[in-house]
């Protein structure tokens, strides 16, 4: 049986028995190569679930949709390792109760899809651990290397040109499972803390605020990068910040549901004399 079939069967069992109230997975999209998030609540609809190498979107953000988990019922969700890490962070940051989340884990290498064993988030710690061990020191991307070699002025110009394309549609924020704030700082308008204008300064403000807010929290699922309608290579910023955090604090985001948030915790014996 293919993984797709196995997971459909499991989804049917869970929904029929009432073990979960909903399965969040992938369905066919507009074109042959597209998949779209799909919400299944009836066991009769499980045939609509698709699982293949085009299932890229990290669906964990839907778990914190307002009201979804407030009835304490369980929800199942299709997740790749990055998505599982995101669930750990959401649990660690008290955004959800991991007990309510049933995971349909999978990973993709090339065109091959393989199932990840486990149901609850803590059962995937080996998978996540091996990602941490296997994480390359630098991104394998050419562009990343190129930016690293730039002088600060050149790098500034590079990002200036990229951010000039930003239209502040906030697709990066909305697609990000870590951007769960009910009211983002840029939407706080009494008073308006951050200018809404999408001009050079405004675009810089937004992208820098986001980069710092995600440091030590981003799981590099790539949702923001793919969502960006103007193709700003946001993944590079996040990757750079993740490297910094790993180097400075040996912190790999989303290792467990009890992992302390690296930039929101303080130890008495910290070598720094103050915190930001």
């Amino acid at each position: 049986m293919s993984i797709e079939e196995q997971y459909r069967t499991r989804a049917k069992e869970l929904l029929s028995g009432g073990a979960v109230k909903m399965v969040i997975g992938y369905g066919k999209g507009t074109t042959a190569s597209r998949r779209r998030p799909l919400f299944i609540s009836s066991p009769d609809d499980v045939e609509r679930l698709v699982l293949d190498d085009a299932c890229i979107t990290n669906l964990s953000g839907y778990l914190v949709s307002e009201g979804l988990l407030s009835d304490e019922k369980r929800v199942a969700v299709f997740l790749r390792p990055e998505g599982i890490r995101a669930v750990n962070i959401l649990a660690a940051e008290s955004q959800l109760d991991a007990e309510q989340i049933v995971i349909f884990g999978f990973d993709v290498s090339g065109t091959e899809v393989r199932a990840l064993k486990g149901i609850h988030v803590e059962e995937f710690s080996d998978v996540i651990g091996s990602i941490k061990e296997g994480a390359p020191e630098a991104s394998e991307e050419e562009l990343f290397e190129k930016i690293e070699k730039m002088s600060p002025q050149e790098r500034f110009s590079f990002w200036q040109e990229e951010f000039a394309k930003c239209i502040k549609c906030y697709a990066c924020r909305q697609a990000c499972p870590m951007c769960y704030c009910r009211r983002c700082i840029v939407d706080s308008n009494q008073p308006q803390w951050v200018n809404t204008s999408s001009h050079s300064l405004g675009n810089f403000e937004w992208n820098i605020v986001r980069a710092f807010h995600l440091s030590g929290r981003c799981v590099e699922c790539g949702n923001c990068d793919r969502a960006c309608p103007v193709n700003i290579p946001l993944r590079l910023i996040n990757h750079r910040m993740a490297e910094e955090v790993l180097g400075a604090f040996d912190h790999f985001a989303g290792m467990s549901k009890t992992q302390e948030p690296v930039l929101a915790s303080f130890k008495k014996d910290d070598s720094e004399t103050f915190i930001l």
Binding site: R36, P37, L38, F39, G61, Y62, I167, K168, C169, Y170, A171, R173, Q174, A175, Q192, N195, T196, S197, A227, P229
Partner: peptide
């Protein structure tokens, strides 16, 4: 619209969407 994530990508790329806000900076 269950899967809509609430970004403005569709409206900002749309040639006819025309809503605006007036802000003092």
């Amino acid at each position: 619209s269950m899967r809509c994530i609430g970004c403005a990508s569709c409206t900002y790329l749309c040639p006819t969407c025309h809503c605006f806000d007036i802000q003092d900076e």
